[in-house]
Design a protein around this nucleic acid. Structure first.
Length: 829
RNA sequence: GCCGGAGUGGCGGAAUUGGCAUACGCGAUCGACUCAAAAUCGAUUGCCCUUAUGGGCUUGUGGGUUCGAGUCCCACCUCCGGCACCA
């Protein structure tokens, strides 16, 4: 007898799957396509190949693979592809440090990921593998860019961007954490640069409305996106500066408080500021203030408990509802990037305006009756953010503010001084990067023709090889003079290429469609393939992508549908957001030295143990802490299953005894059916893998407990054989190698070709049940009773119990509760 | 501050519809096997009182509903994640 040796088993089955191309699925119209099977597109977020895979990758793909196997064995034709999000900063930083071309480091990393995915036994259709850094792929990324450009959804404009002075490069918003560069910790500054944007704000309302089209997404992910988009309804109201003949529109969600506006504030970056104070006594102080704010970092400016500061402009604007002249200020609590960069200040009903009014001794006027003890600061109960009857508001006095709201807006509209308006927190997606390792933006600039898109037939615009990857304040591509200098596609005159590359989130916003038709060199995908496989039925990935990637991909899908390239509105029907794995309670990082390398554990315990452990740690949507002892425990369980297999494999028994089983043999069979039922329901109930696995553990434990002597009983051997094969079948989605090996040894069949087992309902119910007997709600006895016993019989049995009698002695039973098959509760006094 | 999630043994966690709290795993203790160790197998393992029998208590805190609450309702506390001077 040999022990459980994962290495031998795992390489054996990996070879079978590779040679037989077991997990490849054809497209409609291709040989082998099975019309009778429903499709299931199971997809995990593609990895970013930097160095070696870490344990978070193992979790993503272990979870996704379990789902893919489960669906296959329920008769679905499952598409389960893999690729690499290969452009991006780490490879480029490595290049700056070591001089190694990003392509080489990336390819090396991809090779390592590819090999480990095979060693983990993930059931991938390798015929569809893609890398976003290959010209065959980014050609179509560029093609999509051009389609968006044609539709006006890609545009170029000057805009303030986040700039890291140390790395001399712009950063994506997502790479700025608390006002600092995520990589080097330097405080970022704002710079104005010409940038390419995607008009995602045009889709803000559809991105919100179409949450209704999703089948199942975690509520918190939807909420995060909703907050990120940050829709707020209100009105635009125009305040006029008579002296200079200038109109200042503001956005407000509270037009009902317009009568309470006692001053007016502009953001320090407001473009009209200069004009307002030029040649006035305020000029000097305003300029000084604006410069001071400009020098401050985003972090300083956004700090909590920051004192309100500002400078009066010596100008006034007219409040359109009452003709009042109110003073203007510049203050940094007003942000240029939101609304119009100007606000009407209502200190009586807004805490920030209130703070400013107190600091500058400005009048505070109540226009809505009511007090909110939480918000109130002064004796009058102001500021008051709530609702109530209006006051000091002319003809609106006494009206409820909510009712008057629409009327005020309508009135302003008739006067030409306002209109209903909606504002979003969401900004357009800045996609240009002054970096080398990304897809070049397919645009040339011609002196005569201006901005000219590269024609489709000239795609891809290939990324040239360069020597120096260090950013110089512009893209390293700018140094590739031969590449930059080109001909204008329109007039054949001299022109220069765009040297910025695209944000890597662009690459990953459509990769799930390319898998459907990865070798198509005439189009990014064929319509038939897209129509068949989309949408992704089950998407799996880390919750850290809850906003950016998932929102960008939703935007792309809608834009591509509008362009006529897709028939769907939402790319991912169901989303599973898995939690993060920590070590010693902390996020794993190289600097902390608490990383877990999946390779080490696969080497020591086998892929099956590592995968099963990850799925057993806890509910997969939650985070969990890695423990070495935990892996050993799962490895022990798999070894037990293995030994059971070896023990029963050589034993045979006459087939008729299978049905003749009773006693321990029947109980073991019943346990196997219980495990089938439990594991199946746990799978369907939001992928509760931890409890599904524990059910299989219970089955194996039961088999161990009863097996001594059972082989001599009629039906005993068959029962153990059945229990073991069932355990293998149920554990297969998590431990595919061991599952395949044990199942084949005991049944001669390939487990992945076998349908998922179905529990026999007759074995799920037993003849007797344990009756819980309570007195006054406290457990006093448990008795085995016939499952079919009537209420009266149950009561009789319960009262007859010696333990129960003791508590009834000398007392009146005032109430009897009977739950058939479960419990009797006697209420006594 | 706003939004979301979570508080259960020494630890990770389970409890399906309001009905046996602590499944499964880890750790720990004891025993078997062994010259010994590892591996394996078996037993015990929420807390307190008790020689045992037995009894009492226990799901973050305080109340409530109910024959019965980890689960439902109200108030609060703590932790984690996201957003945040967003008008």
């Amino acid at each position: 007898m040999s022990g459980y040796d994962p290495k031998t088993i795992e390489s054996k089955w990996q070879q079978v799957w590779a040679e037989e191309k077991t997990w490849e699925v054809p497209n409609p119209g291709e040989p082998g396509f099975d019309d009778s099977k429903p499709k299931a597109y199971v997809l995990e977020m593609l990895p970013y190949p930097s160095g070696e895979p870490h344990v978070g990758h193992l979790k993503t793909y272990a979870v996704g693979d379990a789902i893919a196997h489960f669906r296959r064995r329920h008769g679905f034709q499952v598409l389960h592809p893999m690729g690499y999000d290969a452009f991006g900063l780490p490879a480029e930083n490595n290049a700056i440090k070591t001089g190694e071309p990003p392509r080489e480091a990336t390819e090396r990393s991809i090779a390592s990921f590819r090999q480990q995915f095979r060693e983990w036994g993930i059931s991938i259709d390798w015929s569809r593998e893609i890398g976003t850094h290959t010209p065959e792929y980014y050609r179509w990324t560029q093609w999509i860019f051009l389609r968006l450009f044609e539709k006006g959804l890609a545009y170029r404009t000057e805009a303030p961007v986040q700039w890291c002075p140390k790395d001399a490069t712009v950063l994506a918003n997502e790479q700025v954490v608390d006002g600092r560069c995520e990589r080097c910790g330097t405080e970022v500054v704002q710079r104005n640069l010409e940038q390419w944007f995607f008009r995602i704000t045009d889709y803000a309302d559809r991105l919100l409305a179409d949450f209704d089209r999703l089948e199942s997404w975690p509520e918190h992910v939807i909420t995060m996106q909703r907050n990120w988009i940050g829709r707020s309804e209100g009105a635009e109201v125009v305040f006029r500066c008579e002296e200079l003949d200038l109109d200042f529109p503001v956005f407000t969600t509270r037009p009902d408080t317009l009568f309470g506006a006692t001053f007016f504030v502009l953001a320090p970056e407001h473009p009209e500021l200069e004009r307002l104070v030029a040649g006035t006594p305020a000029e000097e102080a305003v300029r000084e203030y604006v410069n001071r704010i400009a020098r401050e970092s985003a972090e300083e400016r956004g700090a909590e408990d920051r004192e309100k500061t500002g400078v009066p402009l010596g100008r006034t604007v007219v409040n359109p509802v009452n003709g009042e002249e109110i003073p203007m200020f510049v203050a940094d609590y007003v942000l240029m990037e939101y609304g119009t960069g100007a606000i009407m200040a209502v200190p009586g009903h807004d805490s920030r305006d209130y703070e400013f009014a107190k600091a500058f001794e400005l009048p505070v006027r109540r226009v809505i009756e009511g007090v909110d003890p939480e918000a109130a600061v002064d004796d009058e109960g102001l500021p008051y953010p709530g609702d109530g009857p209006m006051a000091n508001s002319g003809r609106f006095d006494g009206r409820g503010n909510r009712e008057a709201y629409a009327e005020i807006v309508a009135w302003l509209e008739s006067e030409g001084r306002g209109s209903p308006s909606v504002n979003y927190r969401l900004r357009d997606w800045l996609v240009s990067r002054q970096r080398y390792w990304g897809a070049p933006i397919p645009i040339v600039y011609c002196e005569k023709c201006g901005t000219v898109p590269v024609p489709d037939e000239q795609l891809p615009v290939e990324l040239p090889e360069i020597e120096d990857y260090a950013p110089q304040g512009k893209s390293p591509l700018a140094a590739a003079e031969d590449w930059v200098a080109t001909e204008c596609p329109r007039c054949d005159g001299p022109a220069r290429r765009e040297t910025d590359t695209m944000d890597t989130f662009v690459d990953s916003s459509w990769y799930f469609i390319r898998y459907l038709d990865p070798h198509n060199d005439a189009a990014p995908w064929g319509p038939a393939a897209a129509a068949h496989w989309l949408p992704v039925d089950q998407y799996i990935g880390g919750v850290e992508h809850a906003i950016l990637h998932l929102m960008y991909a939703r935007f792309f899908t809608k834009a591509l549908a509008d362009i006529g390239q897709l028939d769907i509105q939402e790319p991912f029907a169901n989303l599973f957001a898995q939690g993060m794995i920590t070590r010693d309670g902390a996020k794993m990082s190289k600097s902390r030295g608490n990383t877990v390398s999946p390779g080490d554990y696969v080497e020591r315990y086998g892929a099956d143990s590592a995968r099963t452990y990850i799925c057993f740690m806890g509910p997969p949507e939650r985070g969990a802490d890695w423990s070495d002892e935990g892996v050993e425990g799962v490895n022990r369980f798999l070894s037990r299953l293995w030994r059971l297999c070896e023990e029963v494999e050589g034993r045979t028994e006459a087939p008729e005894s299978e049905t003749a089983a009773d006693g321990r043999a029947r109980d073991l069979r019943a346990k196997a059916h219980w495990a089938i039922d439990k594991a199946t329901r746990d799978f369907q109930r939001g992928f509760q893998f931890n409890t599904a696995i524990s059910a299989v553990m219970e089955l194996v434990n039961d088999a161990y407990r009863v097996k001594d002597g059972i082989y001599e009983e009629p039906g005993g051997t068959a029962a153990v054989r059945f229990a073991t094969a069932t355990a293998a079948s149920l554990i297969f989605p998590f431990a595919p190698h061991l599952g395949s090996e044990v199942f084949e040894r005991l049944t001669g069949n390939r487990v992945w070709e076998d349908p998922w087992p179905v529990a026999d309902p007759s074995l799920l119910v037993s003849d007797t049940v344990t009756l819980i007997v309570q007195v006054n709600g406290k457990l006093r006895d448990r008795i085995e009773v016939p499952a079919e016993a009537s209420k009266d019989e149950l009561l009789g049995l319960a009262r007859a119990s010696e333990k129960v009698e003791r508590y009834l002695d000398g007392k009146d039973v005032v109430k009897e509760i009977v739950v058939p098959g479960k419990l009797v509760n006697l209420v006594v006094r």
